[in-house]
């Protein structure tokens, strides 16, 4: 008796699951695609310079490399409207709490690019008393751009990789 009921409800759940899948493909997937497509070409970077890699961001935003071609605007002041945090180089012990605070203030969905050897592993400053050995301990990172400093082209490639990641994001929330 109990077993039969379980089998019956099991079959029902399978049916619901199937309908759910169909609905997700038919309605949810285009929505997910549309939402993430909208996000990927309107990335607003935070204006938080942490170290010397910001010079190459300046060059990338300048008229030769022109970051806006790829759908990322110049660095912007208001955190509530930003969805991209570019960590431009070394993060020191003094800056680390501020970096976390900036990340926490940004609205979801948000992405992080770790630019330069210092923000990935500490780089040249591995034995300094005031430098963090990579920022993974503080905030999650989506794309790593190696180099010391990375060329502007390398940074732009990292940006395109991030856009590819957003395009393939598995859910509607963009993550």
């Amino acid at each position: 008796m109990v077993v039969a009921q379980q089998q019956k409800s099991g079959a029902f759940q399978v049916l619901v699951g199937k309908i759910d899948d169909v609905l997700q493909y038919a309605i949810g997937d285009p929505m997910r695609y549309l939402a993430n497509w909208g996000r990927l070409y309107s990335l607003w970077p935070v204006h938080l310079e942490t170290a010397c890699c910001s010079v190459e961001i300046g060059a990338a935003a300048g008229s030769r490399f022109d970051m806006e071609r790829f759908g990322a605007l110049e660095a912007f002041g208001s955190l509530r409207q930003c969805d991209l945090l570019i960590v431009m180089g070394t993060v020191t012990r003094k800056l680390a709490p501020r970096l976390k605070l900036v990340y926490d203030q940004m609205a979801e969905p948000k992405w992080v690019i770790a630019m330069g050897a210092c923000s990935i592993t500490g780089g040249l400053y591995f034995d300094s008393y005031n430098v963090l050995r990579g920022i993974d301990d503080i905030i999650p990172v989506d794309v790593y751009v190696p180099g010391c400093p990375p060329r502007a082209e390398a940074f732009l490639q990292g940006l395109v990789l991030l856009q590819e990641k957003i395009r393939r994001a598995p859910s509607l929330s963009g993550r």
Binding site: G122, F126, D127, S128, Y129, N130, R133
Partner: peptide
């Protein structure tokens, strides 16, 4: 709250 860093008896944590 550690020793002043440029004193010779302060050893950098990476070393």
């Amino acid at each position: 709250n550690e020793l002043p860093p440029l004193r010779k008896d302060y050893v950098s944590p990476g070393r």
